[in-house]
Design a protein around this nucleic acid. Structure first.
Lengths: 145, 145
DNA sequence: GGTGGGGCTTCCAACCGTGGGAAGGTCAAG
DNA sequence: CTTGACCTTCCCACGGTTGGAAGCCCCACC
């Protein structure tokens, strides 16, 4: 099977397949007489495994670990579970931080009454710490285009 | 406050502060007589917000938009609110996606016995198909690059 | 006055993951 | 045989962050 066929069958782009192979995530594929990579259905399986793992947010290092467990007959599901649980903990942590961020933004939004009054209490609060230092001549925001 | 103090106070490295300034994400800091960047507590607040946003996976463009809330006081409250609400909605959507991911992983982990038995449901799901066939011998076919 | 540490600048590099594109060879159908 | 689709390798770009090096300037301290 060509790399293109394997790509279509697995959902991993040919570019990514070559990248995964080159970076050692997946084993080097066999070659045809003309030098074309040749893939078996088992290879497609493995590629699907990789894609699904990536969709679930596993890092390359974690996927490498998972792939080894997948290929290893004497794999222990405890190892797999450990990786999955670590991944879950990471997700939970990030979700919590994003909740905090959203709360901050909501507080900010609630400050802005929505009319044209520009006096936002948060801005006032931020400014009051060091209100009297006019040193900043940042008038022109100078945004580079 | 010079850049080192601002870095320590905000949790953003001095290098990142310069990078943010150079890329236009944050306004150019005022300079002392000797050319040192000078930061106020308001600037430190802004840097902290950038750091949090960055940790939460916001893109630079999004953070730039978020920073408008702080930076541009002459903005109409309606505009501010619109941007904030859009970002909040986006944040909530991401949180939901991540929660789905975590739920999937948790389900798989809960089905995983975590012992030595080789039939791990996590791997089965990642595989999304059947497997078990031995790979074709893929030795060092493609040798030195 | 000297000195150390930190600031200033610019450049160059790397990391992950993905994609685009060029230059050249190969396969399969017409 | 020609043609178009495919393959190969190689380089480059992104976003975001960090590291380092080089060379100069400045501030605080003794």
């Amino acid at each position: 099977m060509n790399i293109g066929e394997a790509a279509r069958a697995s959902g991993v782009s040919a570019k990514m397949i070559r990248y995964y192979e080159q970076s050692g995530l997946i084993p080097k594929a066999g070659r045809s007489a003309a030098g074309y990579r040749d893939y078996s259905t088992t290879d497609v399986h493995m590629l699907r495994f990789v894609r699904r793992s990536r969709d679930l947010g596993f890092s390359m290092a974690e996927i490498e670990e998972l792939l080894q467990l997948w290929r290893d007959r004497s794999r222990q599901s405890a190892d797999v579970k450990r990786i999955a649980l670590a991944r879950i903990a990471d997700l939970r942590r990030r979700i919590e931080e994003m909740e905090e961020m959203a709360a901050t933004l909501e507080h900010l939004a609630s400050c802005c009454s929505g009319d044209k009054r520009p006096d936002c209490p948060i801005l006032a609060d931020l400014e009051q710490g060091e209100a009297g230092k006019p040193r900043r001549s940042r008038g022109a925001i100078d945004s580079a285009p």
